[in-house]
Design a binder for these strands. Structure first.
Lengths: 346, 346
DNA sequence: ATCTACAACGAAAACGTTTTCGTGTTAACA
DNA sequence: TGTTAACACGAAAACGTTTTCGTTGTAGAT
């Protein structure tokens, strides 16, 4: 087992100084061609690679970016990571990921763990608990220490940092408009409580679309799910709530759901109640997931372009890191949504 | 913007030496109580946290583990990551992920990028291209440099390292046995080419289960898909191949598919050909995915316990890192599979 | 007055780099 | 012969820690 070789060892072996070795390897013309060749040959032979940690310490740059997300077993987030990793790698950066698991504490701990020199900047999406408690001190402190943050999807406006968001409002308007165009008269929405910013915005888009078409929104048709922080485990509750909605409002002929699970559950319930999709009820979801594509009937959705979001976020962060221009001018990039029509709409 | 404070700055401010500050913060009794309190108060005030990079350099430990996987937008892999992150975090480690994207080159580059001091050890699953080329020099070199590796799921036996695998053979036997018990007489398998070790093993399990029941395997019923390295993009081809299989062999009354996509596509084709599931054809998949649960009909699958695999892998690696006992005795942990019965079987 | 012992602290090395600033040697030139 | 310039290289600092090994100063014992 031959451990990694260092400059010092090469220097000793070749009976020159460490500086000489370093310079020779970087092709400094300060060093004679003879010595350069000798050193380089030796280094190649022993497969010398500079130690990243030492470089990081010296340069005060780690070439690593930290990602903090609420959950990784989730198509949206894993696609974002893929996007981040893609451009990070292309630009010579590594990514280190921390999962908040939707918990405020884990988010804080994870950030503190990474903020002490391990990374150059953060890309993150805020946990539900944090959004609920509205405690953002960890973001402020991080930024105050000179470490840039880029937030995506779940952001909070007050924090001074770059942001990448989906045009939730426009996206849901698109969806609801589509339902209206397709002849739906009584469109229900299945959404989240308002503290989840994206839920709020999507609800707003729904309302605006109705208003644009002079349709009076009815509160009975707006179902706000209390998220038990882990919806997958409470599928029956979700199903029951949606079943209530549809049973109590048999006039419903269109459903807009703010995420994939809600949409799929809605379709499931509808089928159970013997409603044909899309004949009796048309359904549109909001998501990037794989479920929509493979569901039966396949689900029309508002696609969020998750990977593109990740790419953009990484670009913003790295640009910020590499141009120290300290402009203090933060951008908010809006990623356009796209309505992908499948079988659940006419 | 107050940048991170260092020992040196505290020392200067308090007019003591760096060593004194360091010792005071670590509660060394070498330092008088007076000084200790003073230093600690000051450190707390300025929110001192030791610099991880400096610690890493000094200790020659980064407390970070590297994960290399072929793909992240994939339920199996993201669940494994979740498992790894869970125990890594619990034991004070961070995780840094690299994606090979099923490419040999990216796998090598990623590993080299991380092996130069950034991490203490690897957890990885081998890319298809690497398996195909059978070039494992990067693994050998890494291990030779004293950096431990834990492989999971897609492993190669020759490499001397810990491994965590699913009992693919037993798992697929379970599945096929189930189909036989349920009365299937002509069971087809949709699998991968043999160079993907898990595909090979699952095929083998299929064959053994048939043999155990004195059923003669028929080569027409064994469909080995050539993976175009990105199956999602060639859905129609996949569909066409499976349609061929079922059309040419109308006697098929059971299908065992080695992954979720194949299984779902098989169900889709079956429905298209007006076969009832599970009445005419029963289907079982092999996966941990979310599609199976939400498909219609929902898919009976062999669950791989992905998260548990991740947890185990992380434990093996960290145990190895922390007990320097150099036993050179490598373990292979087998994670049992579980047959989850849903609607696609009787 | 001398010695011992202990308490409280500081200097310096070490981890592996890069880079600045010497320094010694040689050759060219006046 | 003496001066200068170029060349080739080395010493040392710096990044932020921890730790070993001094070095003081003081108090108590002889």
């Amino acid at each position: 087992m031959k451990r990694k070789v260092t400059l010092k060892q090469i220097a000793k072996e070749l009976d020159v100084s460490i500086s000489t070795v370093s310079k020779a390897l970087r092709n400094s013309k300060e060093i004679s061609e003879d010595t350069r060749e000798k050193v380089q040959a030796f280094a190649k032979l022993y497969n010398y690679k500079p130690n990243n940690i030492a470089l990081s310490l010296k340069n005060k740059k780690t070439k690593t970016i930290g990602i903090i997300i609420p959950e990784i077993v989730h198509h949206f987030f894993s696609k974002v990571i893929r996007g981040i990793e893609l451009v990070a790698n292309k630009r010579g950066y590594n990514v280190i990921v921390g999962l908040s698991n939707e918990s405020f504490n884990k988010e804080v701990i994870n950030m503190e763990m990474l903020a002490n020199g391990s990374i150059d900047g953060f890309i993150l999406s805020i946990s539900k608990e944090t959004l609920l408690q509205q405690d953002y001190h960890h973001f402020y402190e991080t930024i105050n220490q000179g470490m840039p943050i880029v937030m995506f999807d779940r952001v909070v406006n007050d924090v001074r940092c770059d942001k990448v968001i989906v045009d939730d409002l426009k996206g849901s308007k698109k969806a609801v408009n589509k339902l209206i165009e397709n002849g739906c008269k009584n469109i229900a929405i299945i959404t989240t409580k308002d503290y989840v910013s994206v839920g709020k915005l999507r609800t707003q888009g729904y309302l605006e679309a109705l208003e644009d078409h002079k349709i009076q929104p009815k509160s009975e048709l707006i179902l706000k799910i209390v998220e038990e922080l882990d919806a997958e485990d409470h599928l029956e509750d979700l199903e029951a709530e949606i079943e209530c909605l549809i049973k109590n409002n048999p006039e419903i002929d269109g459903v807009f759901a703010v995420n994939e699970l809600y949409a799929l559950t809605a379709m499931k319930v509808a089928k159970k109640l013997k409603r044909k999709i899309p004949a009796d009820i048309q359904v549109i979801g909001f998501t990037d997931g794989v479920l929509s594509k493979h569901a039966t009937p396949s689900l029309t959705t508002v696609s969020q372009h998750a990977q593109q979001m990740g790419e953009k976020a990484a670009e913003l962060l790295i640009d910020n890191l590499e141009h120290e221009e300290e402009e203090e001018h933060y951008k908010t990039v809006v990623i356009e949504t796209e309505l992908i029509e499948r079988e659940s709409t006419k």
